[in-house]
Design a protein around this nucleic acid. Structure first.
Length: 577
RNA sequence: GGUCCCGUAGUGCAGUCUGGAGUGCACGCCGCCCUGUCAAGGCGGAGGUCGCGAGUUCAAAUCUCGUCGGGACCGCCA
């Protein structure tokens, strides 16, 4: 037997017993010819061992230490350690592996180390308490997801990683076929198509903790490959899906935090945009957009006169923090997000409005502004005038910039955003509407008659789950009726022939009796990151890739042998300029 | 494809604006001392392609240009 105890579990109850522990040397403290303290660490914690100083063990040596669990002498206990009341004495040390000094400190200070270095030696980084904690939180989430889904009658089904390319949506990773040179598989952006076919196949309720791959640029919250809880259910309406996902996410949260959050509130997409300027509102702080359009209905101020929508934000007491330079910067920020400009107003002690454009406002308009904003002395007011969507979106960005709290697990504010529009914007080249979610998303039945006449006003049976301003996931009720699918395709400018060519394998099954169904998927990495209080999903992934997409530990992606290329029928072209 | 920021010892940094010998600091590492420490302490030591390449200059970590690597964001992510 290698060990009798884990390092972190020894307590006063164990005093007197002989214990063997194994692990890494966390720290050695020398005190003379025949006394040294060696802290041994495993995943459970640290235990102090008293050894003869002639024993040559150094940081990160792997050791087995056998000795007597002993009460520490009075005055030498350590409350910072769970095991701080005891120590292992009369210790016999067996070196299982020696070790070179680690290239960076394996304690909290590693948080300041260049991430490239941490990733190059990820196997050392993973020894750190924080990474151990994060990945164990992740395991807990995965386990709780399975428990919750199983208890709700969902069954786990794996879907292929090798599938045909589907040109819609995210750029795909492509895998060459050896047996058919010149032909390629694609790795799934999501199991979307397969899970719907499982519904046609009669499985009723499916789930999978699925790996998804997208060849798009990486971000703090985006990796090439990421994990989703993917689910789909037959004979389900919007509320059924929301209910199942809510049950899942709340019980997962409870499993990690010990507390079950309150039921998740819902907001419509339109209200979310109108009040928070984004489809993923962070409702941990207020600062809602204020409607001003009516105030300036007959204004003489040209910049406002022609605008479809005028809205503002009140930054309470912020006037003093914003000098001219910072306000210019904020204006540039607003412009970079599509605004034509940003009007700022400081509210003075006498409730007069100080602003470069104040002279263009009538007294009535000024009074109405103060009234509408409920403005107080020292407030900073920010106003954008543009088309409705731009106005909302710009102020949404400004709102986040001004008030959004840091990533934190102190407060978890889940939010359902429902009634997304079926189409968002227009394709630049064709002028046709573009699907907001995906082209298999069911239109809201009340709006179906507007599909051809006013497509952009059609709502979808589509919904997002938001946590603290992060989009955790999205889903929809799908189209199960081929006639409805044709109708939506036709709005998108896809005729039968084109549809057959692009989605044939997926559409044919719907001619054989498809149940009404809908589903959802939420990102495990993002959920774990927030629950762990990390603002970067790389901190909750064992072996992530940096933003460059190249792995400093393995060196991937790598070139391949000429022979491999030949076998696959591939030829590498020089890079494009 | 674009914008901004970073690159000096194993790690984290100062030095760069205003050019003058790698003068450095902390941790780590190596050696010695040390019997109750726990970020132990004391003494000593080793450790540098200042990312790389050009240019300007009597002289470049420092200024200029280019390039590589990394990060945050925009585009992109149905």
């Amino acid at each position: 037997m290698m060990r009798t105890h884990l390092c972190g579990e020894l307590r006063q109850l164990d005093i007197g017993s002989t214990a063997s522990v194994t692990g890494w040397v966390n720290k050695r403290r020398e005190h003379g010819e025949h006394l040294a303290f060696v802290d041994v660490r495993d995943y459970s914690g640290v235990i102090q061992c008293v050894v003869d100083n002639t024993v040559d063990v150094r940081s990160e040596y792997v050791v087995k230490i056998t000795g007597t669990v002993t009460q520490r002498p009075e005055g030498t206990t350590n409350d910072a350690l769970d095991t701080g009341q005891v120590e292992i004495t009369d210790a016999e040390v067996e070196i299982l592996s020696s070790a070179e000094p680690p290239p960076f400190p394996l304690d909290e200070r590693a948080n300041d180390v260049d991430e490239q270095v941490r990733l190059k030696y990820r196997y050392l980084d993973l020894r750190r308490e924080q990474m151990q904690k994060n990945l164990r939180t992740r395991a807990k989430v995965n386990s709780a997801v399975r428990t919750s889904m199983e208890s709700q009658g969902f069954i786990e089904v794996e879907t292929p990683m090798l599938m045909p390319t589907t040109p819609e949506g995210a750029r795909e990773f492509i895998v060459p076929s050896r047996r058919r040179p010149g032909s390629f598989f694609a790795l799934p952006q999501s199991p979307q198509l397969f899970k719907q076919l499982l519904m046609v196949g009669g499985f009723d309720r499916y789930y999978q903790i699925a790996r998804c791959l997208r060849d798009e640029d990486l971000r703090v919250d985006r990796q090439y490959e990421f994990m989703q809880l993917d689910l789909e259910m037959s004979f389900a309406e919007v509320d059924d899906v929301l209910g199942a996902v809510t049950e899942s996410i709340l019980s997962v949260t409870e499993a990690v935090t010990g507390t079950r959050p309150a039921e998740i509130p819902q907001i419509t997409w339109h209200d979310a945009m109108n009040r928070f300027g984004t489809d993923k509102p962070d409702v941990r702080f207020e600062m809602e957009l204020v409607e001003l359009t009516d105030i300036f209905a007959d204004t003489g101020f040209k910049a406002f006169g022609a605008a479809e929508a005028i809205k503002g934000l009140r930054a309470e007491g912020a006037a003093g923090d914003w000098g001219r330079n910072k306000l210019d910067g904020l204006t540039d920020f607003a412009k970079s997000h599509g605004a034509k400009g940003l009007v700022w107003i400081k509210v003075s002690d006498e409730l007069t409005l100080e602003s470069p454009v104040a002279k263009f406002f009538s007294d009535d308009e000024k009074a109405a502004l103060i009234d509408r904003f409920e403005a107080k002395a020292g407030d900073l007011l920010l106003i954008v005038a543009d088309d409705w969507l731009t106005t909302c979106e710009v102020l949404g960005e400004v709102r986040n910039k001004l008030g959004r709290p840091a990533v934190s697990n102190d407060r978890l504010e889940y939010l359902w955003v429902v009634d997304f529009p079926l189409f968002v914007g227009k394709d630049k080249s064709t002028g046709l509407p573009r699907p907001g979610h995906h082209p298999f998303c069911h239109p809201h039945p009340a709006d179906v008659d507007k599909l051809e006449t006013d497509p952009t006003s059609v709502r979808a049976w589509a919904y997002d789950l938001v946590l603290n301003g992060w989009e955790l996931g999205s889903g929809s009720i799908r189209i199960h009726d081929p006639a409805m699918q044709r109708k939506v395709f036709s709005v998108l400018g896809i005729d039968d022939e084109e549809a057959q060519k692009r989605f044939g394998f997926f559409l044919t099954p719907f001619n054989y009796g498809a149940p009404p169904h809908g589903g959802f998927a939420y990102g495990i990495d993002r959920l774990v990151a927030i629950l762990a209080g990390e603002e970067n999903i790389r901190e909750v992934i064992a072996f992530p890739k940096p933003q460059s997409g190249s792995d400093p530990m393995t060196g991937s992606p790598t070139e391949i042998d000429e022979a491999q290329l030949v076998e696959l029928g591939l030829k590498v072209l020089p890079p494009l300029d």
